[in-house]
Every structure is written in C-alpha cells, then in structure tokens.
Design a protein around this nucleic acid. Sequence first.
DNA 1: TAGTGGTCTAGACCACCCT
DNA 2: GGGTGGTCTAGACCACTAA
Lengths: 239, 239
Amino acid sequence: MAKYKNVADELRKQIKQGNYPKGGQLPNQNELAEKFDTSRVTIKKALDLLSVEGLVFSVQGSGTYIKKNIAQISDTGIKIGQNIGLTHQIGEQTELVNKVLAFNVRFPSDEECEQLMIKNESPVYEIKRLRVINNRPYSIEYSLLPVELVPNITPAILEHSVYDYIRQDVGLVFGGNQQFIKAAPPNEEDRQYLNCKDNEPVLEVTKVMFLENGRPFEYSKVRHRYDMVEMCFNNTQQE
Amino acid sequence: MAKYKNVADELRKQIKQGNYPKGGQLPNQNELAEKFDTSRVTIKKALDLLSVEGLVFSVQGSGTYIKKNIAQISDTGIKIGQNIGLTHQIGEQTELVNKVLAFNVRFPSDEECEQLMIKNESPVYEIKRLRVINNRPYSIEYSLLPVELVPNITPAILEHSVYDYIRQDVGLVFGGNQQFIKAAPPNEEDRQYLNCKDNEPVLEVTKVMFLENGRPFEYSKVRHRYDMVEMCFNNTQQE
DNA sequence: TAGTGGTCTAGACCACCCT
DNA sequence: GGGTGGTCTAGACCACTAA
C-alpha cells in the first residue's frame, strides 16, 4: 500500500472519530510530514485524496480545514463511482436477495461491441436480475459481460455477487467506470417486477465498468424504483 | 497557470485533434518530460488529470493509452460536477430562456441554515426559475443564496446567468459541490411548467455549491423533464 | 511580514508488463 | 532483462492569507 494512502486512511479515521473539531483546522503540511515521518509532497497527495472525498478543503495561504457537513454525505444515498457492487454497499441489517430473471449467452450487437470493445463473434453473458431488499423490490439490472474476460459464470454466482466473483475468483483488478443517469417512466417490466404504478418512475443508470488495464468488462443498465435510491456525488475544485 | 495544467491542455488538444490514434499509446513519461521541458512528476500530474477526464488510462509496466470511446463521453448529456452553469453548458444553436417565476428574500429554515452554514437571522434570496430551451420547457430551478455572500441580485441577472454574476461581478471563486440525484413523479408545478403528464417523471438534482474557501454559496434543487437531460459521470481508479 | 498551501525539480527505487 | 508507470524524497520558489 502506498504511503500517501496510509496517511489518508489514518487522517480519515481521526477526522471521523472527531479528533479534530468540525470546521477546525488541520496541522499544517510540514507538521503532518514530520508526524507521519514522510515528505510534504506525500502529505499533500493524501490531503488531495481527502479533499476529493469531501472531507477537507485547503485554502492557499491559510490552511487545511475540516468540512462541517460530513455526516450527511457519507450516510445518504449510494455513492456514484463506488464499484464495490450493491452487495457490499447496503447496510448491515438489510437483507439483499438477487433473483435471476434471465441468464443467457449470445452474440453482442454493434452498439454493445463498441461499448465493450469486443468483436461481434465474441459471445457475452446476458443477465437479468431483480434486486430485493428487505422484501421490497429495489431494482432490475440488465448486464452484459464478455465470456472471454469473465468465464464460467453460474446462477449461484449471480445470486451472490458478480463483482466478488470477478475480483476474488477470476482475479481481475477493477479500474474506473462511466455512468449515465436519467429518469424514465415505468415500462412493462418495471410494473411487473418493481411494482411501479403508472406514475412511479425509475432512475436508470447505464454503466460501463473498466478493468485496471482499460478494458471494459461489463455494460449494464439498472432501473431503480424512484423511492429506493438516491445517487450522491462529491465534486472538487475546478478552475 | 500551473505547468501541469498547460501540459494537460496541450495533450488534450492533440488527442482530440487525433494526433495520436485512438487506442494508441502515448510517448512514455520520460519522453514527454523532455518534450515539454519539465520533470516526470509534472507529466504524471498532467496525465492524472486526463485520466480523471476519461481521455487516457495508464497501465503500470506497460504504458499510457488513449481511450477508444472518447466521442460519446464528451458529447452526451450534462457532465456532473461542471459548475459553469447551464448558460454555458448548452450548445451553440440552442436558445436558452430563463423565466423568473419567483424572486424573494426571506429567513432560512433550520435545514437550509445547516446546508448553507449560516445563521437563522441571515437572509437568503429565494429564486424560482423556469428554463426553456428552444421553446421547450427544460427544468425548474429552486435556489437559495445567502444575501451576505451574493448581494444585489436583480431580475435582470436571473434572466441571464447567476454564476456569471457571482464570478465576474461579485468576484467570488468557485470550489467544489455536492450533488444528490433521484427520480421523482411529477408534482403540480412540474405539470404546470414542464408540461409533465402524470406518467412523465422528473430528474431531481439537489446541489450545494461551495466557494474556494469552503463556504457554501448556493443550495438548489432542480427538477428536469426526464426526456431533456441525462447526467454523465466519469469515475477513475479506486483501490 | 510570517505562515501556509501550490507547484516544481532531479534523482531514486520499486512493481509491474512483456518478450 | 529492459522498459514502463507508481511512488517517494529533500529542497526550493511562488502565491496567497492574515495580522
């Protein structure tokens, strides 16, 4: 583990524990560098991480401060960008059931080829799952995975966590992802599986997941019941 | 302007011009450092920027490559996190009209105080605007701005761009923002102003905008017609 | 003016990929 | 084993803030 990540972890822990008062100032970068026995550049990199996470902000010439409204950010909604999979994203007392509605293999369409950067002849798994949380329908997920990248998927895997399987068993390392989010009126399947009434919309999230090496390994569309999910996003300094 | 931003700008321009083939490899960091007459660390920082933007990705031990599906990312939808304001986010041939539906001053509620980090006695502007693009209703925006931070707002400003006013006339510098996104059934105002039918939902975006010094200067809720907007988001390496 | 964060450099070592 | 990116250091200079 890189040193700057360790420093960030430690500072994050201390901040969340309340060792520094909310709205308060952190020690300056030189002090932190000494305290963590490292260089100032490394401290800066750690602080940049925390800044992206929305925990602190820095003002040139003044100092680095702890944001006042931290609690709400980390507790509400689902963080955009986290690719740990829904299985690990929900709380402790909640019960998540993945019901497999469809599981096939087929050749991809032209659009799917482009998104997944594969050839037309390269087969993909086509998966449709219903997510149920505490006995309430939560979302329908339509996902495509190239067989050559993620082989040997089974219904048992689908009922647990695909991402766990990909990481732990296939041994792939995740990179970034792209997401497109919009609202949509309910369609037939939303009404059937999510119990949407005519005026109850869904939040549709289209996502392409990438490996560390830049190859896409999943192209998915998830339709959430509007009252079960809120996506949250934290954006840092621009120019 | 920082050197690493200049390097990023230059590389971005070259990539978008197609000087490097899509899916191709960039020169290695040492070559780039020499070419731009700078250090490798600075090159790395520039490449990190482009990586966050989704233009390139790096593989340790192998090289830095140009992403294949760039066009779609930059052209579709509205980028989450850009705080340039809608006025500058839409294209050239489009006509944006801001119709002011309400413009008041009042004291904030407790929740609003917390979001804006101000006191109950500190007045806020309360603004309701309808956005119309090419004669089609686009979104309703409800926003609150502390009078002490952003004084002297006028209807004329509201019809143009509030963000332009804040930056150019008030002279404040923007920092980051937090956004919460969900789908919602249409309410009375959505039906009235956005012409939503009963089954036509809205995409609701709640946003807190921060200044460079960490102070919030705007708390807003925007309800978009579901068929007029898609938010897109690009997320990079985790772990 | 003193203190702080932002940036930059040159050089170094390591982990990883590919052949 | 040679090439690549990831990280780290010590020291430096600058821009900005705050008194």
